[in-house]
Simulated assay, not measured.
Amino acid sequence: MSCSKVGGSCCRRAVTLTVDDFGFVKTNTDEGNGIKRFTWTNANTKSSAQVITYGAIITSLKFPDKDGNVEDIVFGFDSVEEYQSVKNRYYGATIGRVANRIAKGKMTLDGKDYTLATNNGANHLHGGIQGFDKVVWDSYVRGNKVFLTYHSKDMEEGYPGDLIATVSFELTKNNEFLVDYKAVVTKPSPVNLTNHSYFNLAGHGKGSEELYKHQFTVNADRITEVDSTGIPTGNLPPVSGTVFDLRVPKTLGDVINKVPNAKGYDHNFCVTKASSQELAFVAKAHHPPSGRVMEVYSNQPGVQFYTGNFLPETDVSQGKGAVYKKHGAFCFETQIYPDAINHPNFPKVVLYPGEEYHHSTVFKFLIEN
């Protein structure tokens, strides 16, 4: 396995960036692609992060606890073959062209009806059968930042127009992991990118026992109401007086079994923010036993809070030497509201030629004793 410094003067920075090989995958053609892995290391704080070009996936995030013990806090695998297997449930992946669900895989855009690939029962989920999580992205490096690009062709998974997506990643000296998405299109098309990392601040293999000890805060006074299949009804009920009121911290173990008609949280929260384009505080997770804290900031109007309800209970998945089971991790997926293309009262999801989609998210890691 080859490894080299990239970014020129990175060795003089608090955070260093290296690249190595992470296997080889076949594409839809007869050609194959070598997969690159990028590793940021913050020697001052003993923190690190890794991203691969397959699926623009975050494979590892390691941070110390209050006693200096380092743990990997995201689900993932040790090989690209495992990321291509059925046991991968979007672990760490970049999601597109549209994150979350689109009802019945149907949409009407400028008077024309479109049928998208359906891969979640009758619904379209996370970009379809082969979304952005299952393709090889091109890459380049600028300074300490890695840029991954993907060209989604006209009618791929049913979406109109060519789309060029760029996602950049960077670990800063202040233990902030920055993810920035941009996209342009040649025809009007819905665009809603996100990252689907599964977090457990106690450590990726610590399971539900430790996840239930997490305290969660979400800066939202409304949610998107959903039906039994997870499709929004169009209603945006207030969270006040419900189990969805996470405006002050709640310990997950105290509330997860009170979520109505569900096995836990899997809901879009409507972020309370002053400006539609500026970064705002979205959510916070705190694991008191370790002291680890993750704060999320974004310019997106929503965040999907998911508590791993559909992870296996008995037929367990294994990754990076750990067992992954139901309620073993949580996700904060910053996004435009689900199924926005079919709800005129939801935030704008259609991107037009000449416009640029821009989505910024900051995952900030701290220690609280």
Rank of each mutant, 00 (worst) to 15 (best):
G7F: 05
C10E: 15
C11P: 13
T16W: 02
T18V: 06
V19P: 08
D21N: 15
F24M: 15
T27K: 12
N28Q: 15
D30V: 12
E31V: 14
T39E: 10
T41L: 10
A43R: 09
A43I: 13
S47K: 09
A49H: 09
V51Y: 00
G55L: 11
A56R: 11
T59H: 09
K62S: 08
K62R: 05
P64R: 03
D65E: 08
D67G: 13
G68N: 00
G68Q: 06
I73K: 00
G76D: 03
F77T: 00
V86W: 13
Y91S: 05
N100W: 05
T108H: 04
L109C: 06
L109F: 04
D110T: 00
D110L: 06
T115H: 13
N120Q: 10
G121V: 04
H124L: 01
H126Q: 02
G127V: 06
I129D: 12
V136I: 11
V146L: 15
F147N: 13
T149D: 13
T149G: 11
D154T: 09
E156G: 06
G158Y: 04
G158W: 05
Y159R: 01
D162F: 01
A165G: 02
T166D: 15
L171M: 08
T172N: 00
K173I: 03
L178G: 07
L178A: 12
V179Q: 14
A183M: 08
T186C: 06
N192D: 03
N195K: 03
Y198F: 06
G207N: 11
S208D: 12
E210V: 10
L211N: 12
L211T: 13
H214C: 11
F216P: 03
E225Q: 11
E225C: 05
T233A: 02
G234L: 05
N235G: 06
N235P: 13
F244A: 01
F244Y: 02
L246E: 06
K250C: 02
P260W: 10
K263N: 15
G264N: 03
G264L: 06
G264W: 07
D266G: 09
F269A: 09
V271N: 14
S275R: 09
E278W: 07
V282N: 04
V282P: 08
A283Q: 10
A285R: 10
A285P: 11
H286N: 13
S290E: 01
G291H: 02
R292K: 12
V293I: 10
V293E: 12
E295D: 15
P301W: 01
F310N: 09
F310K: 01
L311I: 04
E313V: 14
T314A: 13
Q318L: 08
G319M: 00
G319D: 00
G321H: 08
A322V: 09
A322M: 12
K325D: 03
K326W: 10
A329W: 07
A329F: 05
F330C: 04
C331N: 11
Q335P: 03
D339P: 00
A340C: 06
H343I: 03
H343D: 02
F346Y: 05
P353C: 07
G354M: 10
S360G: 08
L366V: 11
E368T: 12
